[in-house]
Structure formats: structure tokens, C-alpha cells
Design a protein around this nucleic acid. Structure first.
Length: 192
DNA sequence: TATAAGATCGCCT
DNA sequence: GGCGATCTTATAC
């Protein structure tokens, strides 16, 4: 597995359209691919922070043994069975929050994990991992169920701006049997 | 009520 | 490359 060495252009005047609920009401794989090159936006400590999404993973439903929803409909996974466009946040290893976005139809427990991003607009931050990304955007368990199409946390995409997409197996799911090697992790690299 | 393990990271050698 | 931190969740007793 190679180290990411691509340097992204700073797009300080990035403009795009805020993603509304229908965008998320599709399969997690499609949403995960199309989120590459989109921009995550949140105002943290009074400062508007933006980051170009460069790595995602799709968790495609209760039949996906890597997906937490494969354990069934529990208090933890309840949000994933709900409508699309809301945050599924959980704590891993006792210290890192993971930011996911619920996708697909209500009752179909799919979600996309945001794994890494490139800070934009002169923001000096390391967003090169899901724990670091969530920490920098101040995502915590208190944000479970947050509406991703609302005013607090949202995503903007310029359909004319595309990244080259590479698919690989997902990280850290060796327990997932036949699903361990499914190419559902997506990396976006700049097209020259 | 108790226990084991986890969609990670940072520090160590 | 290995390992410890730290706590929620699911599952077992």
C-alpha cells in the first residue's frame, strides 16, 4: 500500500452546490465515489473550515459483514436504518470519533465513512485519517444524527471538478469474512 | 454485572 | 514494524 504523496491545489475560491438529501438517497458505493472531490464545510470555533474529501469507504448494508448494521438494528446502529443524509458517529478504540453519512433508502442501512481530506482556504491541519478528520472538525458522539444537509455541517460539490478514483479493500476489517477484500475504499487523486 | 474487541493514532525501537 | 491508550458496544454470564 503506497503512501499518498499527491499535493492538491488550494482552491480558495471553490464554488459548488450544497448536496441535498436526494444525493445521499442512493447506494453507499455511488455516494462514496461521488464524495471524492467534494468539500466538507463546518464552522469550528467561529472559523469556517473547508476540506477537499480525498478518501471514503462504503458500508453497503446489513448483509455487509464489515458494516456495523450487520449486527442488526441496535441502539448504536439505529441511525443507519433511518433516512439518508444524517451523521452516523461512533467512538473507536476509546478515543477516535468516526464520521459517517447515512445513505440509501430508509430501512436500508448503508453509510459512507469519511477517511481523509485535504484542508483548504489556508487551513493548516492534518486530515489524513478518519480519526484526525473528525477531531479537526470537532465531530463527537454529540453529533450523532446531525443533518448533513443542514446549516452546521454540510458538503458542497462542483460537478465540473472531478478526481481520478481508485478502489481498494477497506481498512481494518479483517473480521469481515468474504467482505474483507471487497473494493469499497475509494481514493481520489488530482487529474493532471 | 463482566468481559472482549474495535472502520485509529502516535510513539517506540 | 510493534504496541499501548481508552471507552462504547455487543454479547456472554
Amino acid at each position: 500500500m503506497g503512501v499518498k504523496t499527491v499535493t492538491y491545489l488550494t482552491i480558495s475560491k471553490y464554488r459548488g452546490r450544497k448536496l441535498e438529501r436526494p444525493f445521499f438517497m442512493r447506494g453507499a458505493e455511488t455516494v462514496a465515489r461521488e464524495l471524492l472531490g467534494a468539500v466538507l464545510v463546518r464552522t469550528v470555533n467561529g472559523v469556517r473550515r473547508t476540506a477537499l474529501i480525498t478518501e471514503t469507504e462504503a458500508y453497503v448494508g446489513a448483509h455487509d459483514l464489515a458494516c456495523h448494521a450487520s449486527k442488526g438494528r441496535t441502539r448504536r446502529t439505529e441511525i443507519m436504518f433511518g433516512p439518508a443524509g444524517y451523521a452516523y458517529v461512533y467512538l473507536i478504540y476509546g478515543m477516535y470519533n468516526m464520521l459517517n453519512i447515512v445513505t440509501a433508502a430508509e430501512g436500508d442501512a448503508q453509510a459512507v465513512l469519511l477517511r481523509s481530506a485535504e484542508p483548504m482556504d489556508d487551513w493548516d491541519a492534518d486530515l489524513s485519517g478518519p480519526g484526525k478528520l473528525a477531531r479537526a472538525f470537532h465531530i463527537t458522539l454529540a453529533d450523532r444524527g446531525l443533518d448533513i444537509t443542514g446549516d452546521d455541517l454540510y458538503i458542497v460539490k462542483n460537478p465540473h471538478y472531478q478526481l481520478k478514483v481508485t478502489a481498494t479493500p477497506r481498512i481494518g476489517i479483517d473480521y469481515a469474512g468474504e467482505w474483507t477484500h471487497a473494493p469499497l475504499r475509494f481514493l481520489g487523486t488530482q487529474i493532471q
